[in-house]
Write a protein that binds this DNA or RNA. Structure first.
Length: 570
RNA sequence: GGCGCGGUAGCUCAGUUGGUUAGAGCGAUCGACUCAUAAUCGAUAGGUCGGGAGUUCAAGUCUCCCCCACGCCA
């Protein structure tokens, strides 16, 4: 039995994610986790909310709530929606957990002991009215170059000139609008990633099977310009993990917190601790420590392309630098973006379809199937309502759903609601079994390789094979002169439904369960031999005719949704 | 402006280390069937593989130049 540690990039806390976010990491990660579990492998699938940083504070302020309370509420909302989409996390944690506080401080301490942390003095703008330091993008003013009056502290959007906050004319806080600002000298910690550059480079070079998208991004950061830059890992904020050196105070760092990008990936590890504590003390180190049983673990990360640098460089630098035997990622699967109707999905602009809205329209399986079968793997891909309607109607309703209908309804009308007996498989059935054998092998190879679109394509072909068989066997004709043969043909059809239920479960868990339930089969094992699998349900076994598994999306629905989601979310 | 990823049938996309008549699904057209959610099955049509030059016995697949779209950065 293999052991798979699987993590999805952790979604930020400030709001409900859109479908682009979903297909960019959580959904393919879930597909892989479900596949590995179905095959009988041991899986620990972890995800969490990323809760620290200025955007969380601002979102909380906008909602009129203390930030801790806001995060707790939004975490519950995201957890509920994730559940609605069937995302099968073993634990959905929080980067603000006590476990992550301890672990983040631990890593910082180890890195400092290893000489990989440097202290740097910086000048930052402090807002007296807001009672806090303002990062560059939270300072606005008039551009000295073009007189644009909404230039940000780091750059003028109008003339693209780079700026320092002190360059701005009449600078003001973007949060409160206050002009009561002053420049203060403040000390910060930097992670000396540059010292680990060669180690990281060698590590990346050892990953021959990673997608080009992944390695090319990592290589660019390693070698571009002056090479990998050191990175500030602390901030002058209230909300976050207090800067401590292990369990000791860190002189000079009082009142500061770690930067969100330092503590967020550490949550992958801390989340296992949260999981263990929720399981009444399960052993989490056997998943994460190679000296404590994680040697045979295969660790796979899923993420959008924008997250690649942090997962290939910053986080590995943290782990390597600690000098401790933590599990490093084995395979890193990254995704491009899903676009919405000619533009981008946008959380800040409310453009596109958000996860909660999607579930109001249709069950999760519809979205899961379409998104996964159109997954943006090699390049950005496009969501349009027309493509969505076509894909769902054809693949789910016509090919799979209708197959289940025609088999079960034909059997009910001719033989009753029990698997009919009589006849035995002949050449046509042997040919189907041989075909399915090859297709299932390809399907599994594609799933193992995390080739999401190709897996979906093969699964669809497996569904279609059932219709092809039925069309050729034509039990509705056979039954006129040979009842036994017709019974055998429809018995095979019913067995195919069972096979489809288990094979499809990583993609469409809901419909898979409906199929299994209709057959009265609680637990169908993953097929190791197709011939055995299609003889699993014996004559006499009772079944029921399920409601149509998938309703078609009408042109009226599509037009209505298209109009409803054309604007921005209010 | 620099860098990155792409530009393959009407649409969405596959095309390993260069090698027989460039593939799939959808859509279209025609036919078959009638058990089924007017579903299914079969067949056909459709591409000078963004443009140009080069290397090679042979290039969608390598090299160079150019054009276009998108993204990142300064």
């Amino acid at each position: 039995m293999q052991r798979h540690l699987i993590t999805s990039a952790i979604p930020y806390i400030n709001g409900i994610k859109h479908l682009g976010n979903l297909i960019g990491s959580q959904l393919p990660a879930d597909l892989y986790a479900r596949f590995q579990r179905a095959r009988g492998n041991e899986v620990l699938f972890l995800c969490a909310t990323d809760e620290h940083g200025t955007p969380a504070e601002l979102a909380a302020a906008k909602a009129g709530k203390p930030v801790a309370e806001y995060c707790a509420e939004m975490h519950a909302v995201q957890a509920r929606i994730a559940d609605g989409f069937g995302l099968s996390f073993d634990h959905f944690g929080r980067s603000s957990s006590p476990q992550n506080h301890t672990l983040t401080q631990h890593f910082a301490g180890r890195l400092a002991d290893a000489g990989l942390i440097s202290e740097v003095s910086e000048k930052q703008v402090y807002s007296n009215a807001d009672g806090r330091y303002l990062p560059d993008r939270y300072i606005e003013g008039t551009c000295p170059n073009c007189a644009y009056d909404k230039a940000r502290g780091d750059q003028c959007e109008n003339c693209t000139k780079q700026l320092d906050p002190t360059d701005l004319i009449e600078p003001r806080s973007a949060i409160s609008g206050s002009t009561d600002l002053e420049v203060r000298e403040t000390k910060h910690l930097y992670l000396r990633q540059s010292a680990l550059k060669d180690d990281l480079d060698a590590w990346i070079d050892s990953k021959k099977d990673w997608p080009v998208l992944t390695t090319s991004i990592a290589k660019k950061w390693l070698h571009d310009g002056d090479g990998l830059q050191d990175r500030g890992i602390t901030r002058d904020l209230d909300w976050g993990i207090p800067v401590r050196r292990g369990d000791a105070d860190w002189p000079g760092m009082e009142g500061k917190v770690f930067y969100v990008w330092f503590d967020a990936p550490i949550e992958y590890i801390a989340c296992a601790g949260e999981w263990a504590d929720a399981q009444d003390g399960a052993n989490w180190e056997r998943w994460w420590r190679t000296d404590k049983g994680a040697d045979d673990v295969r660790y796979t990360q899923f993420m959008g392309k924008d997250n690649v640098p942090f997962h290939t460089l910053s986080f590995p630098a943290t782990i390597l630098g600690s000098g401790e035997p933590w599990k490093m990622v084995d395979h890193l699967k990254s995704f491009n973006y899903l676009n919405y109707d000619g533009g981008q999905f946008s959380t800040s602009q409310g453009r596109g379809i958000f996860m909660d809205q999607a579930l109001e329209l249709l069950p999760a399986d519809y979205w899961r199937w379409w998104l996964l079968s159109n997954c943006p793997e090699t390049s950005d891909s496009e969501f349009t309502w027309e493509l969505f309607q076509q894909g769902v109607n054809k693949d789910l309703a016509d090919v799979l759903g209708n197959f289940v209908s025609r088999v079960t309804k034909f059997c009910r009308s001719k033989f009753g609601e029990a698997v009919p007996s009589g006849g035995s498989y002949g050449p046509r059935e042997d040919a189907l079994i041989a075909d399915l054998d090859a297709r299932v092998a390809r399907y599994m190879a594609m799933m193992e390789a995390m080739e999401v679109r190709k897996s979906a394509q093969e699964l669809r072909a497996i569904w279609a094979a059932g219709n092809e068989y039925l069309q050729a066997a034509a039990p509705w004709s056979t039954i006129k002169e040979d009842t036994d043969t017709a019974a055998m043909q429809i018995r095979l059809g019913l067995n195919l439904i069972g096979l489809y239920a288990v094979l499809s479960s990583p993609f469409i868990p809901g419909a898979s369960k409906q199929m299994a339930d209709a057959l009265g089969m609680a637990d169908i094992p993953w097929p190791s031999d197709i011939r055995i699998a299609v003889e699993a349900i014996d004559a006499g076994h009772e079944f029921s005719v399920p409601e149509n598994l998938f309703a078609k999306i009408s042109d009226e629905d599509r037009a209505g949704w298209e109009a409803r989601f054309a604007g921005i979310r209010s």
